[in-house]
Computed example of a mutant assay.
Amino acid sequence: MKEGKVLKRQYTQEYKLESARLAQSVGINEAARRLGLPSATLGNWKRLLEKSAVLAGIRARAYQPGPQRPVSELEAENSRLRKELASARLDVEILGKATTYFSKGLR
């Protein structure tokens, strides 16, 4: 890949909608920080969501693809999954060190 060339990321419409909803509930900067997105990109998605809702004459909540879960519930699940991932990474690290230790003893 050439230097200076940035790959264009592509996101699904559902991801954009959910991200825009998160930005509406907690603010653009906070949502961008949580999702690891540029705040300008998230702001564009939020504006498009609001514009499409106004043009359709309905509230943005009508765009829900399925049952909506509260942000706090999603944050709790995210926290639980992060802890689980940290535990799994620790297990892998310990197994790697144990393998190295025991393989040195076989030589």
Rank of each mutant, 00 (worst) to 15 (best):
M1S: 14
G4R: 14
K5T: 11
L7F: 09
T12K: 12
Q13G: 11
E14S: 05
E14G: 06
R21H: 08
L22D: 01
A23Q: 03
A23M: 03
S25Q: 15
G27T: 12
N29V: 14
R33G: 07
G36L: 03
G36Q: 03
L37P: 03
A40S: 15
T41E: 15
L42F: 08
L42I: 10
L42S: 02
G43P: 07
K46D: 01
R47G: 01
L49S: 05
S52W: 02
S52R: 15
A53N: 08
L55D: 15
L55N: 13
L55H: 12
A56V: 04
A56T: 05
A56G: 11
A56W: 00
G57L: 03
A60Q: 01
R61D: 12
R61Y: 09
Y63G: 04
Y63W: 09
Q64S: 13
Q64L: 08
P65H: 06
P65M: 07
G66N: 13
Q68W: 09
R69M: 06
R69C: 03
V71P: 00
V71C: 02
S72P: 01
S72I: 14
E73S: 11
E75S: 07
A76G: 03
E77M: 02
N78T: 03
S79M: 04
R80Y: 07
R80L: 10
L81Y: 04
L81G: 01
R82Q: 12
L85A: 14
A86C: 10
S87M: 11
S87T: 13
R89K: 15
R89E: 15
L90R: 13
D91C: 07
V92I: 04
V92K: 01
V92L: 06
V92Q: 04
E93K: 07
I94D: 07
I94L: 13
L95I: 07
G96P: 01
A98D: 07
T99D: 13
T99Y: 13
T100H: 08
T100K: 12
Y101I: 11
Y101D: 12
Y101S: 10
F102N: 08
F102Q: 05
F102Y: 15
F102I: 12
S103E: 14
K104S: 10
G105C: 10
L106A: 11
R107E: 13
